[in-house]
């Protein structure tokens, strides 16, 4: 089928954050089956922090992710399975194991300024015959020129696609457009966009990305992803249909898997709460949300204060341990004032 746009669903990876990494095999099978039947081309299955992310730092996986990848691969008749890999957390062996379990695409993710840690992993992805993607996270934290420089590095390692990843849901539509346009002019591989809805702009940002030349776009069913979640996959299908883009995904079936499968096991609605709004506002990594709630409770401080401070400190993805430290410092300061 000829598609103008390639929708990549991340419910089973980004959603892992919201599920505290406790997806069951049955849930994964049902979602995988639904996505496949609706015509989704790629969907991602991994721990929220990528392969090897199961840890005390980010949360232990209830079910080994390799088992979940295998289960998803069994259900997917046409769709291909993607995995996420963050060098520094996961290693090359994790990717080799994921391929044995059925992965066909790898997205190698680094902070927007650190692409050079990913060379070996990109090369391995190509070597294993995977569709290999460079995934530049926290794209709001670097100037456009830096993003372009890092995308070129990824391209030089052999990445077949570069993603602009708005991990904090902090970008505004004109900033997305500026970034995608700059990449379009400087690299020759495909461009993707991954958004978060912390400022209620995920759909608008995805549209801006597509108008500027992105052809791969991420979404999650019912927004099941970190923070307030991602661009809502089923909404995206409807919107791009109205805009006359061919996504190859059928609206009713994708709505059905969202509402009859995912909605049934979501731990809570993916609303824009006080905390997630502040994440978008101050540019904080979306998966910090649940950890911040816990730390705020433990130390009796305002979640928003923790998040603003993390933004001020320019924390990057993966620094979940810092949340605790910041909350404690804030509590100490509060007590010393009293």
């Amino acid at each position: 089928m000829k598609r103008d746009l390639h929708i990549l669903d991340v419910t089973l990876r980004d959603g892992s954050h919201s599920m505290k990494h406790a997806f069951t095999e049955e849930q994964v099978r049902q979602v995988a089956k639904g996505l496949d039947q609706a015509g989704v081309e790629y969907f991602e299955v991994s721990h929220g922090d990528g392969l090897g992310g199961s840890s005390l730092q980010y949360g232990l996986s209830n079910v080994n992710e390799l088992k979940l990848i295998e289960a998803a691969a069994e259900e997917a008749k046409r769709a291909k399975i993607s995995v996420l890999l963050l060098p520094g957390i996961g290693i090359q062996e994790d990717l080799e194991n994921a391929v044995k379990a059925g992965a066909k695409m790898v997205r190698v993710a680094t902070h927007v300024t650190e692409a050079d840690v990913a060379k070996q992993h990109i090369q391995l992805g190509r070597h294993l015959g995977l569709k290999t993607v460079g995934f530049l996270m926290m794209a709001h934290m670097a100037p456009v020129e830096k993003l372009v420089e890092q995308a070129k590095l990824f391209e030089s390692y052999g990445a077949e696609m570069i993603y602009v990843t708005d991990s904090a849901g902090a970008l505004l539509p004109h900033e997305v457009k500026e970034r995608i346009q700059a990449l379009k002019q400087s690299i020759s591989v495909d461009i993707g966009f991954h958004g978060h809805n912390n400022l209620s702009l995920a759909m608008a940002n995805t549209m801006a990305a597509v108008e500027a030349g992105a052809t791969y776009i991420d979404g999650s069913l019912r927004c099941l992803g970190a923070g307030s979640g991602n661009t809502q996959t089923e909404v995206m299908v409807a919107v791009f249909d109205r805009l006359n883009y061919k996504t190859g995904v059928d609206l009713y079936p994708i709505m059905d898997v969202a509402n009859h499968v995912v909605a049934k096991f979501m731990p809570r609605p993916q609303e824009i709460t006080g905390s997630s709004l502040i994440m978008g506002y101050s540019g904080v990594y979306s998966s910090f949300l649940l950890f911040t709630e816990d730390a705020a409770k433990k130390f009796g401080v305002d979640e928003r204060d923790i998040l603003v401070e993390l933004g001020r400190m320019r924390a990057v993805g993966g620094q979940e341990d810092l949340i605790y430290d910041v909350a404690r410092e804030l509590a100490n300061r509060k007590h010393s004032v009293i």
Binding site: Q57, G88, H111, R314, A315, G317, Q319, L322
Partner: peptide, 19 residues
């Protein structure tokens, strides 16, 4: 083991967390 690189400027002091 996990390693995180942080590009903040001024640079951050090395931090290590043990769980």
């Amino acid at each position: 083991a996990i390693i995180i690189l942080n590009p903040a400027d001024p640079p951050i002091i090395m931090r290590d967390t043990i769980h």
